[in-house]
């Protein structure tokens, strides 16, 4: 079952490549939150209850409900254009994300000698690289944050793959996740929205040589 959820996660990454509305991105992030909820529920059912509740709370309340709502609020409040405005054509985005998945697959097979669930590794590395790719190729500050959230989701999947031995690690990662996301999202996005007319990286190119 976990495998199917992880494949669904990877499909959501591909879909992110062709999505051209910000609302679609937000929906994808919410769906990813639900998928992470499913995966963590299946994988971590054996750990103690408080940790489990903490992790499930993080995935459902934070990733699936709070962040999408907040992003919607930011987009409405700052009157951001609804298109994602990538620098690349969508077709190329899909091709590149497919190549990323292919590359992660090859990487997961080259690396040997360590016992790891390869499916987790594959999806986590794909999410990391796709998130970086989205950050690089999209124009808006909001899409940068979305790319960052995709990276965080990848990290979450990878930390799940350490299994129930390493609950401390998972919790640390989650705490960081919440901390940084709240800070970055809450403080800076609104500040940037208030300071500049449009939340575009074009406005953030004054510092150069």
């Amino acid at each position: 079952m976990t495998n199917i959820l992880l494949i669904a996660f990877a499909i959501s990454l591909i879909y992110m490549g062709i999505a051209n509305r910000l609302s679609t991105y937000i929906n994808i992030l919410a769906v990813q939150g639900i998928i992470l909820f499913g995966v963590s529920f299946i994988e971590l059912i054996q750990i103690n209850t408080i940790n489990l509740i903490f992790i499930l709370f993080e995935t459902i309340v934070f990733k699936t409900i709070a962040i999408p709502l907040f992003l919607n609020y930011v987009i409405k409040k700052n009157k951001i254009v609804r298109e994602a405005e990538p620098f690349l054509p969508d077709f190329l985005s899909v091709v590149i994300i497919t190549c990323i998945i292919l590359g992660s697959f090859i990487l997961s097979n080259i690396i040997t000698g360590v016992h790891i669930q390869k499916m987790f590794f594959l999806v986590a590395i794909s999410a990391l690289l796709s998130g970086l790719f989205i950050i690089i190729t999209r124009k808006k500050v909001v899409t940068h944050i979305m790319g960052y959230l995709v990276i965080e989701n990848g990290v979450f999947i990878l930390s799940l793959s350490t299994g129930n031995k390493m609950t401390m690690l998972v919790n640390t990662g989650i705490t960081l996740d919440i901390f940084v996301s709240v800070l970055v999202l809450g403080v800076f996005v609104n500040r940037i929205g208030n300071t500049f007319e449009e939340m575009n990286v074009d406005n953030l190119t004054n510092l150069k040589d």
Binding site: V114, I116, L128, I135, Y148, G154, V155, M166, L169, V184
Partner: peptide
């Protein structure tokens, strides 16, 4: 933040190892 996240991935991989 991105850099520190990438480092965290390294730490997770180390813990797996």
């Amino acid at each position: 933040s991105i850099g520190i996240t990438i480092t965290f991935i390294g730490i997770i991989l180390l813990s797996i190892a």
